[in-house]
Design a protein around this nucleic acid. Structure first.
Length: 268
DNA sequence: ATGGTCGAGCTTCGA
């Protein structure tokens, strides 16, 4: 069972290229971030044609997440609990029920960027991370397999950034940010990409500016966190780096890439 | 050398 996460930076700006990736990668479940559209403008038919059940938590212009599953889903939750004032569409969760395997709960995450830091946007980010920790704690009590996948906007470790000095003080790399991420991991979750390749440099994002892709000036900010029951079913995980190439894809050639690439984990 | 790039939707903001 393959579970993928992809920050698409607008689903409608590069739909052919994204569909081309789906046809190649064939994830059983995918969570998408920064779809940048309301529910009604999400191209659901194109995914339903490929056999996916489509759940969307959209928003005009900014943010927006979706969860696509080849298997039936239940218990769909839109929005991260813990703050009734939060109207940003950054979280979607569902129980995925494969035919021949135990269910897996999948959470799709678009964690706030938080810049400039310090400031209100950074406070929102740290508050959101505390709410995510609370959600993870609640899910752990059920002792079921779950995967929290998405754009965490967190660079966990020094080896996850090309130039650590350049990122000092940034909301993605501040000590408080990394500590909040470690708190979530230390509940007992497994970082899927790290599990697949403990010492590998695997960036998932390259800025559009300053020739970051050409110079491989990347950062690792997209992550797949597994509950103990999901980690017991871990097979492998990876990063589809070629999707960042300007000419990547076949049906999608000529369509500009997202600034993120897909990440995925395979469970038994 | 203090620039440079995207996307949505409107002439700016967020990343």
């Amino acid at each position: 069972m393959k579970i993928a996460s992809f920050n698409v930076n607008s689903i409608n700006a590069r739909l052919p290229r994204i569909l081309d990736w789906f046809d190649k990668a064939r994830p059983d479940v995918a969570v998408l971030q920064e779809i940048k559209c309301i529910d009604e403008k999400f191209p659901a038919l194109e995914f339903e044609d490929r056999g996916y059940n489509v759940e969307v938590h959209g928003q005009k212009t900014y943010n927006g997440v979706a969860l696509l599953s080849k298997y039936p889903v239940d218990d769909v939750m839109r929005g991260l609990p813990g703050d009734d004032e939060d109207d940003q569409s950054r979280y979607i969760e569902a129980l995925v029920m494969p035919k021949d395997a135990a269910p897996v709960r999948v959470g799709g995450i678009y964690l706030p960027n938080g810049n400039p830091a310090p400031g209100p946007k950074y406070d929102y980010k740290i508050g959101w991370m505390k709410r995510l920790k609370t959600r993870a704690q609640a899910l752990l009590l059920d002792e079921e397999a779950f995967v929290l996948a998405g754009d965490y906007n967190v660079i966990p470790q020094t080896e996850d950034v090309h130039d650590p000095k350049a990122w000092e003080g940034d909301a993605l790399y501040r000590p408080e940010t990394r500590a909040a991420f470690r708190e979530i991991l230390n509940l007992g979750l497994t970082d899927g990409l790290r599990q697949a390749d403990p010492h590998g440099v695997r960036y998932t994002f390259w800025d559009y500016q300053r020739g970051a892709w050409e110079k491989d000036n990347g950062i690792r900010i997209d992550h797949l966190l597994l509950s103990p029951q999901a980690a017991d079913r871990f097979k492998t995980a990876g990063v589809d780096r070629t999707e960042r190439s300007p000419s990547g894809g076949s049906a999608g050639s000529g369509v500009k890439p997202s600034d993120h690439v897909p990440v995925w984990v395979e469970l038994i």
